[in-house]
Simulated assay, not measured.
Amino acid sequence: MRSVQKLANDEWQPIQFYNLQYGDYFRMFDNITPVSDNGKHIFIATSSPYYNDEGHYKIDCETY
């Protein structure tokens, strides 16, 4: 199961994926394994979550 944490007040706090907002720093886990992009585990939201063509939530982001 995938979980999401948002950085708020210098602490990682659980958040529902659909509650992320543009500019949020976040990280995701598949069970206990961090989701990464080229070894980077922290992302910055460059959009708010939206549904893709398959009906799944998606968010545009960059690595931090």
Score class of each variant (00 low, 15 high):
41 H>M: 14
47 S>N: 03
22 Y>R: 09
28 M>E: 12
41 H>T: 14
41 H>P: 07
27 R>I: 01
38 N>H: 14
37 D>R: 14
20 L>C: 03
54 E>R: 12
56 H>T: 12
42 I>H: 01
16 Q>W: 11
61 C>N: 06
39 G>L: 01
18 Y>K: 15
14 P>E: 14
19 N>A: 13
7 L>E: 07
24 D>G: 04
24 D>S: 04
60 D>H: 06
6 K>A: 06
22 Y>W: 09
24 D>H: 09
18 Y>D: 15
35 V>S: 12
15 I>A: 05
61 C>L: 07
33 T>K: 12
1 M>N: 15
7 L>D: 02
43 F>P: 05
44 I>S: 01
58 K>H: 14
55 G>W: 01
13 Q>S: 02
39 G>F: 02
17 F>V: 08
26 F>Y: 13
63 T>L: 07
50 Y>D: 00
3 S>H: 10
47 S>Y: 05
58 K>R: 15
11 E>Y: 06
36 S>R: 06
35 V>C: 11
5 Q>K: 10
23 G>W: 08
6 K>S: 03
33 T>Y: 09
22 Y>A: 02
22 Y>F: 12
20 L>G: 05
9 N>M: 05
2 R>D: 09
35 V>W: 13
34 P>I: 00
2 R>P: 09
33 T>Q: 10
6 K>F: 02
4 V>F: 09
10 D>H: 11
58 K>I: 11
37 D>T: 13
49 P>I: 00
27 R>N: 06
45 A>V: 00
58 K>T: 15
43 F>K: 04
4 V>I: 10
18 Y>W: 14
26 F>E: 07
51 Y>R: 15
41 H>Y: 13
34 P>H: 00
54 E>M: 10
40 K>S: 12
47 S>E: 03
59 I>T: 08
7 L>P: 05
64 Y>F: 12
8 A>D: 10
46 T>I: 04
34 P>A: 01
51 Y>M: 15
55 G>N: 00
21 Q>K: 15
37 D>Y: 15
32 I>G: 08
18 Y>H: 15
25 Y>E: 15
33 T>N: 10
32 I>M: 11
37 D>H: 14
42 I>F: 01
5 Q>C: 02
28 M>I: 07
7 L>I: 01
43 F>S: 04
27 R>Q: 10
14 P>A: 14
52 N>Y: 03
7 L>A: 02
28 M>G: 11
31 N>D: 15
49 P>K: 00
52 N>T: 03
2 R>S: 08
55 G>K: 01
17 F>W: 11
2 R>L: 13
24 D>Q: 05
63 T>W: 07
3 S>P: 08
24 D>P: 04
61 C>W: 08
34 P>L: 03
42 I>G: 01
38 N>L: 14
32 I>N: 13
53 D>K: 06
57 Y>E: 04
5 Q>R: 09
12 W>E: 03
54 E>S: 11
62 E>R: 14
23 G>S: 07
5 Q>Y: 08
51 Y>I: 10
62 E>C: 10
11 E>Q: 13
49 P>E: 00
45 A>W: 00
43 F>C: 04
51 Y>S: 12
32 I>W: 11
43 F>G: 04
2 R>A: 08
13 Q>T: 01
30 D>K: 13
16 Q>M: 14
59 I>F: 09
50 Y>S: 03
36 S>L: 05
17 F>H: 09
4 V>K: 02
12 W>R: 03
31 N>M: 11
